[in-house]
Amino acid sequence: MEELNPDKLANEPTPSKKTFDKLIRVLKGLIYIILFLLFLAFIPVYLLFWVDGVKDVGVRMTTSNHNTFNISDSLSTNGIKLSKSLEKEYNKNLAKLNTYTPKQSFIVINISENTFKLYNAKRVLIREGVCSTGSYITLESGKKKWEFQTPKGMLKVHGKITNPVWVRPDWSFIEEGLPVPSARHDSRYEYGVLGDYAMSLGDGYLIHGTIYQRFLGMPVTHGCVRLGDDDLEVVYKTLVLGSKVYIY
């Protein structure tokens, strides 16, 4: 029979210490696994996103700036001459660029946001507000097609009309599921629906009023630009024949 050695017994780990060691080992393993997973996740994040920042730092650190400046404010005689000639050229080009700004009142229409800005002849903004522009709807009826888009670009006011009458085109009947009447049929003429004023932009497009005030600010028209009553009056009175209309 083996004799019990008290020293050996004292060195042997107790069951609780054994469990603690096991726990530590498991935790250690878990930490390693988490670290490894973090490293794996770091790789694509770094390659796709963070590398740009590192790249920029790398470029900054390794590129010597070739742009050497003469920090003295005083220019030589040649420098002064050059500076004057450049200033002259700049002012000449700036004046040339300014000739593109209209000399008459003009209006700018944003068809994405359905807003307008009206400027007077002095290029001062005098009114801004909401409008309605083309709905981007394409109406298809058999082989016929109508696209209800407001044209983009620089147009001009070709005509000014008070108390305009709307002569309904074919698509307005087709859109409502009605039979298309003859060209001069009474049902084609509608009074008061275009507001008190209209300005022609060519190709059948108009800036006019509307009885559907609740739709202002929305893309709901057949290509024309609709304004609220008060805005329409100001726009009509400000724009002249030939005034530029910028639509974007």
Partner: peptide, 16 residues
């Protein structure tokens, strides 16, 4: 770019 919508012409006013 262009939020186009296609509408087929309605047969009558109810469909419209």
């Amino acid at each position: 770019k262009v939020p186009k919508k296609i509408v087929i012409a309605p047969k009558d006013t109810i469909e419209a």
